[in-house]
């Protein structure tokens, strides 16, 4: 049993983090919200690091590397379709869309070739996308799309895409917790550090539990999806991860706001931006309730394999 990512993944993840930090971290998001047209430069920056040469179909090392890149990007809510490009099947970028005809996909307005998958793995063409004229603060890069069903499936592709989206969200939550934990240690009220108040400590502990539990599950799901010979099994595992991360996002980001007090809503602190940026990823293609429904269907159809027991044979 090996519970650590391969050194290549750790190394590339650290490199991407360092580069984004060098560009200002969450300031990249602030800049792109002010001027969405500069998002292309974010893609170029990652291109300089060789990120677009990663091909996740090549094997477990590549998928682990891609996962760490997504985690690093999510850490700063990097305003670029990193998940969609690294998880792409048959286009530059593959979006996750709702089978119910939902009409928003992040970043579809960018000049790339696009297609889409839903949570059951059905494939769609995604012929065009234009920026939402009424985009709210929760989806500054949302595009209106009109997915056209192709009539075939790419279940494994959907599993990988949902997996990478999970790693992106994990990175975002980890950053929010680190900021919040630091704040509760620095900020004093009534002559005591915030973390010394039990109600604060309990909420922080709940947040840590969500993120640590999600982190372990994200690694397991990655291994399972890489090695399982059964596409339905892989998809169930990916959806289970998304169920966990949607719950985690609720606990972590609500706590991050609350424990930062009024500061948590300001544009000055990062958690305020991370919270906003998380919304489109938490709600697209489906929100928590509907994702849990999709997971239930997958489990009732394909089962939920016992830990460490996946349907044999490395792919």
């Amino acid at each position: 049993m090996r519970l650590d990512l391969c050194p290549e993944a750790v190394e590339v993840g650290a490199m991407v983090r360092e580069r984004i930090e060098g560009e200002g971290g969450v300031d990249v998001l602030r800049r792109c919200v002010a001027d969405p047209d500069v998002r292309g430069a974010v893609g170029d920056m990652l291109g300089e690091l060789g990120i677009w040469e990663i091909d996740i179909s090549e094997g477990p090392i590549e998928l682990e590397v891609a996962a760490e890149v997504c985690r690093a990007a999510g850490r700063y809510a990097l305003p670029y379709p990193v998940v969609e490009r690294l998880g792409a099947t048959g286009a530059d970028a593959t979006a996750l869309v709702s089978a119910r005809g939902q009409a928003i996909a992040n970043h579809r307005d960018l000049d790339l070739t696009w297609n889409a998958l839903d949570l059951e793995g059905s494939r769609y063409d995604l012929p065009s996308g234009r920026r939402l004229p009424s985009a709210t603060k929760l989806a500054p890069f949302g595009s209106e799309v009109d997915p056209v069903p192709r009539g075939d499936k790419a279940v494994r592709g959907a599993a990988r895409l949902v997996l990478l989206q999970g790693w992106w969200l994990l990175g975002l939550l980890e950053n929010a917790i680190e900021d919040t934990a630091r704040y509760t240690e620095e900020r004093e009220q009534f002559g005591r550090k915030l973390v010394r108040f039990q109600s604060v400590a309990f909420q922080l502990a709940d947040m840590v539990l969500e993120s640590e539990g999600s982190s372990e599950l994200a690694k397991y799901a990655l291994w399972s999806i890489t090695n399982s010979a059964d596409d339905d099994d892989a998809l169930a595992e990916a959806l289970g991860l998304r169920v966990a991360l949607q719950r985690a996002a609720g606990v972590v980001l609500r706590g991050a706001h609350q424990l930062h007090g009024a500061m948590g809503f300001t544009d000055e602190v990062d958690v305020s931006w991370l919270s906003r940026a998380s919304q489109a990823v938490r709600r697209l293609p489906e929100d928590s309730q509907r994702t849990t429904g999709a997971f239930l269907s997958a489990v009732e159809r394909a089962g939920y394999s016992e830990l460490g027991h996946i349907a044999t044979a490395s792919r």
Binding site: L3, L217, Y220, T292, L307
Partner: peptide, 27 residues
């Protein structure tokens, strides 16, 4: 109720997460 079966499914995920945390501790 489908909402109850969904809670059951989510509890399976929660159980898996906890078991993985146990394995990390043992490791």
């Amino acid at each position: 109720p489908s909402g109850l079966r969904e809670r059951w499914a989510a509890a399976m995920v929660r159980t898996r997460q906890t078991r993985l945390l146990a394995y990390r501790l043992l490791e």
